[in-house]
Simulated assay, not measured.
Amino acid sequence: MEALHASNLFSVNGLVAVITGGGTGIGLMMTKALAANGAHKVYIVGRRKEKLDEAASHAPEIIVPVVGDVTSKDSLKSIAAQIKSEVGYLNLLVCNSGMMGPQIPVKAAEASVSAYAAAALDMAWDENVQTFATNSVSPLYTTFAFLELLDGGNKKGNRIGTKSQVLITSSIAGFLRTPGLSYAYGMSKAATTHLTKQLCSTLVPFDIRVNALAPGLFPSDLAAGLISNAKKDPTEEGAFEKSYIPAERTGKESDMGGTVLYMASQAGAYLNGVIVVIDGGRLAGLPTTY
């Protein structure tokens, strides 16, 4: 029966993790959950040093801030080299960095075809490309950059009782058909979801698992525009109508923290190639391909 105790099933004691975008939003929620529950080291990667340092202050003996750019192969290689020299292995890689991308300022249902076409073509091409680079391409190269360290985690005996894992942050936006959303964001997250499945199959010979989270609305810079109409603290029940989010609130730290602990620990050791939707039921009320 001891093996079924929550303290054993959900233990991340000794875990070494890297979380890109770990200084803010969902990434910070993951960082704090792992650090609060026995992780040995949690390396958080981002471009804003002040945000990383602020996040690291929650547990400075565990959380290690690393300034880096996930869209740069040289930067990724440099971070991997640092971790190899400091601890030598990795149990969990969380590819969490993301951006929203440009949106068309008019709605097709409210504009003439010529006005809509003009506004759509006026979107910055480079911003759409950068959204794909950050949301879809960077998880691919980040995985490759840390592959040997993840293999090292397996050879170390993986102190948490499960094989090394890549966890990618996708989004329910990858399933949505709702008009008016960022095309680049939705398309890039759909690509991210499929990338998870491709990597899962590819990395089987190395015993490295690949799973993804598809979050709905959580307080973050990305979601700010979508939760600005909250009646009160958006994480409190009653902040939204059921028609917007059946749970009547956004996700909060405990929701994301509990989920990442499940997926990172022995409790989630049998997960591979899985997309975990965590959205308070929001997909239920939207046109989707889910």
Rank of each mutant, 00 (worst) to 15 (best):
N229I: 13
I83H: 12
A3H: 08
N91P: 02
L283G: 11
R159I: 00
L147W: 11
V113Q: 12
S243N: 09
P179M: 09
I275S: 07
V42A: 06
I104H: 01
T20W: 00
L226A: 15
G22L: 03
N91A: 12
A36L: 11
A109F: 15
G161S: 02
Y116R: 11
V137L: 15
G101C: 14
Y270M: 10
A212D: 12
Y244L: 10
L90D: 12
K163C: 08
G152C: 05
D69E: 14
A269L: 07
P205E: 04
M30K: 07
P205Y: 05
L28K: 15
N158P: 00
G285Q: 11
G157Y: 00
L181S: 10
N135F: 00
G285W: 06
V18Y: 06
I19V: 11
T196I: 04
M99S: 14
V64W: 01
P65K: 01
A230D: 03
M256H: 08
T250C: 02
V106E: 12
V137N: 11
G268N: 13
K197M: 02
L271K: 05
E110G: 06
N158T: 01
G238K: 03
G281P: 03
F10Y: 12
L93A: 08
R159A: 13
N272A: 11
G22S: 05
E127A: 03
A111I: 11
V66H: 06
G281R: 08
D221S: 04
M29Q: 11
T178S: 01
N13E: 09
T288R: 08
L286I: 06
D74I: 15
R47M: 00
A191Q: 04
G27A: 10
R159P: 00
N154F: 01
G98E: 07
F240W: 05
A3Y: 07
E61W: 02
V274D: 13
I278V: 14
P179N: 04
R177C: 03
T71L: 08
S114G: 00
Y270A: 09
Q165K: 10
G281N: 03
A224Q: 10
G27Q: 04
I172G: 01
F218C: 07
T259C: 14
N229Y: 04
A109E: 15
A81I: 10
G14I: 02
